[in-house]
Design a binder for these strands. Structure first.
Length: 320
DNA sequence: ATTCTGACA
DNA sequence: TGTCAGCA
């Protein structure tokens, strides 16, 4: 029973023959066809491949991504495969956050309805606003892939412009100094890039995790700092559960976000931070006003400075 | 009888 | 992806 026909395979895997042909059409599989009648024949490997497709699809991965993942598996490229899974994970986190938000606003509306016997118009807006924000998050995803080409030269570029490099080094060092992490703490570096900031903490014996949207950047950071726990993801959907970090830092990354997105990022930081968790952000941002506003409204004590009079840095510690 | 391709929902 | 048509 080596050569299986399409219907047999379909039955075995609980899918339709049409689905199998569809996967072939999309280039995910290429079963051999018999010369005379064009009937497809499936080998054990074909079936294993289909199983893989179904598993990844079960996890919600789009067919296009599955295609790439399979290609990496063909070449035994475990690294690449891992990053596809990481990417998939980060997408799931984003969706999870999305649902969480919707549930929260729904709960809110239920409460309003209970109290007011009617639904205020602004509540409707709020819900719409929520899903709008989510779409923006998704939009940010598409750019993810092409950042990768920058990774190999990142450190060179950071070091090239001597003046900027001074700022760069001093900025990282000041973040480390202000945060003054102690042994046993767990920190997160958002937009860790090649891991330079996280590396400084690691050098001090601190357990660090890093999030970056580029898998190439992550790869470089892992190479430089094997103990760094790198993970794919973005600022607006940090791929971690609630309350796991003692501090969150971010350098030379925040300015890529709009002000609105930055505030969203802050709420995300607070989500993954422990109750007393602190935040330190630095980089070429035009203004810190909106950030300091948010921090004050949310019960943080602030410390700010302009490094070399050009690079703003802000450190926030929860009061209490 | 079964599969295939292509069109359309 | 499901469904349907017209073939081989």
């Amino acid at each position: 029973m080596i050569p299986l026909q399409i219907k047999e395979v379909a039955t075995k895997l609980n899918i339709s023959p049409r689905a199998i042909r569809f996967y072939e059409e999309k280039g995910l599989i290429s079963p051999i066809k018999q010369a005379h009648n064009q009937y497809r024949t499936f080998t054990e490997q074909d079936i294993w491949r289909l199983q893989t497709i179904l598993s990844l699809r079960e996890a919600g991965m789009p067919l296009e991504s599955i295609k790439h993942a399979l290609a990496e598996m063909d070449e035994d490229n475990i690294q690449e495969l891992r990053y596809y899974l990481e990417l998939q994970r980060s997408v799931l986190v984003a969706k999870w956050l999305e649902m969480k938000q919707v549930i929260e606003t729904t709960d809110h509306m239920i409460t309003l309805l209970k109290v007011n016997r009617t639904l205020p118009l602004e509540a409707i807006y709020k819900l719409a606003e929520g899903s709008k924000t989510l779409k923006e998050q998704r939009t940010a995803w598409k750019d993810t892939w092409h950042y990768d080409e920058l990774a190999p030269t990142h450190d060179e570029r950071a070091a090239s412009h001597s003046g900027e490099y001074t700022y760069y080094e001093d900025t990282l060092n000041l973040i480390v100094k202000w945060v003054s992490a102690i042994q046993g703490e767990h920190g997160l570096d958002l937009g860790t890039g090649t891991g330079n900031l996280a590396g400084k903490f690691i050098a001090g014996g601190i357990h660090m995790s890093g999030v970056d949207q580029s898998k190439e950047m992550l790869r470089h950071s892992q190479r430089k700092y094997p103990t760094l726990e790198g993970r794919l993801g973005n600022f607006l959907a940090i791929p971690y559960l609630e309350g796991v970090f003692d501090f969150v830092v971010s350098s030379f990354a925040f300015h890529h976000l709009t002000n609105e997105q930055q505030l969203l990022a802050l709420t995300e930081m607070r989500r993954v931070l422990k109750p007393r968790g602190r935040i330190c952000i630095a980089g070429p941002m035009s203004s810190l006003l909106h950030l300091s506003h948010w921090f004050e409204e949310n019960g943080y004590l602030l410390k700010q400075q302009l490094i070399h009079t050009v690079i703003p840095i802000i450190y926030a510690v929860p009061i209490r």
